[in-house]
Design a binder for these strands. Sequence first.
DNA 1: CGGTGGTTTGACTACTTTCAACTTGGGTGG
DNA 2: CCACCCAAGTTGAAAGTAGTCAAACCACCG
Lengths: 240, 240
Amino acid sequence: MGNRFTDKLQRFHDLGDDGAAALVAATSRPRKFAPKRDLIREGDRPGPVFVMLDGWAVRYKILPNGLRQVLAYLMPGDCCDLHVGLLAEMDHSIQTITRADVATIDRIEMDVILDHHRGVAKAMYLAQLVDEGTMRAWITSMGRRSSIERVAHLMCELYIRARAIGLTTEMSFELPLSQLLLADSLGMTPVHLNRVLRELRRTGAMTLKRGSLLIEQPDLLVQIAGFDENYLHRRLRRAA
Amino acid sequence: MGNRFTDKLQRFHDLGDDGAAALVAATSRPRKFAPKRDLIREGDRPGPVFVMLDGWAVRYKILPNGLRQVLAYLMPGDCCDLHVGLLAEMDHSIQTITRADVATIDRIEMDVILDHHRGVAKAMYLAQLVDEGTMRAWITSMGRRSSIERVAHLMCELYIRARAIGLTTEMSFELPLSQLLLADSLGMTPVHLNRVLRELRRTGAMTLKRGSLLIEQPDLLVQIAGFDENYLHRRLRRAA
DNA sequence: CGGTGGTTTGACTACTTTCAACTTGGGTGG
DNA sequence: CCACCCAAGTTGAAAGTAGTCAAACCACCG
């Protein structure tokens, strides 16, 4: 009865039948986007809330010198900040990676839903807290993890997130990310990333090839990454 | 009639007399902390919302190997996530840097205030969006700026934030951050940070010395940093 | 007046980028 | 169906950046 968006939120907090229905209705007219299409750009005035019903996207920034930094991945079910409409302008851009189905929820409608369905509001606040935790984990990776640890850590994160929404099969999953994109996510050059991937393959921990990741030794990968999934807050507060 | 917390929020959105009064009342019993005291640690169950009425604090994470990464600075008037109470456990720690006056707002009380004073809710959402924008800027710095650009960028940010709350005098301000702390913020070693600071001094852009920053050539510093303050969202949306 | 934490410096090492060339995999148009 | 093309991936060598280790220095505090 739901879609990937409500399925994700439902795992955070009970939306209630009417809450879920309201969200489904609000996202019932998704638009299809080709790969590498900007949904919104830095400097634009924020519009509606974007909801990824299918496909992947990235948040990113371009520096004056043309370098790009990826800030976050949006996977099916993810959405952007619910209150983003309060801002005068975007401080980053959002672009599709793959073909994608993207719904938009008007700011007013979003407010109405949040006001009338406390379960939806709680679930969305939790989703936002997880996104923030993820940003903190990225800052930590960039600042204090070696390049091999950083790569391993991101792969662990993406695997856990993909698994949570049913995109994994055994120890592998579709990962539609080019090495260029990964390099821009991890603050390294594509050349160096390529060498790090080779090293991870050599250790037997994982193999990334065009479009999919195979995790051969999960324990080893987790150990290399120093991965602790607490920041994804999959353990929820009881009696919230 | 307000305090540093309400003053800050008021700049984002009109709190209304009763909204401001409610916040002042809620933060009227601050507790004093010595420097380097943890307010809460990673793994702890989140409690009330912390509000910095005076003094500085940092959010940080410690890695398994003992390395520390600073995630954000909390300056007077700043507070931590309003919905943090929804989480089962903290994904990072918060520690005072200086002596500090910290108020706490109980989760229930916070919810009541947000429900009854829409202006307060809007202002706090905006504050949170700015904090998120700041995290994105940090990720960008760590990933794609050189060390000298990174240092310059952080100094620009801290100056702008300090100025917004009236802590600056001309082109200098009190900056109670050790080089060790700055190094842990910028993902570099204290030794290297020290050399970068020397280089910035040499160019004549700025001089950091024990406890205060003097910006000698603002234009040069901004240029070195590639600083664009849009992410601090000081330009607000009209008719919000 | 000696500690203690913080800052500064030098020499050496390790890691990462740069640059440039070459390979591969898919898709497209003839 | 195949030749071509382009984006993406891979590799080597040289250069540059940042980390490590160790010691000295400094300022403030008790």
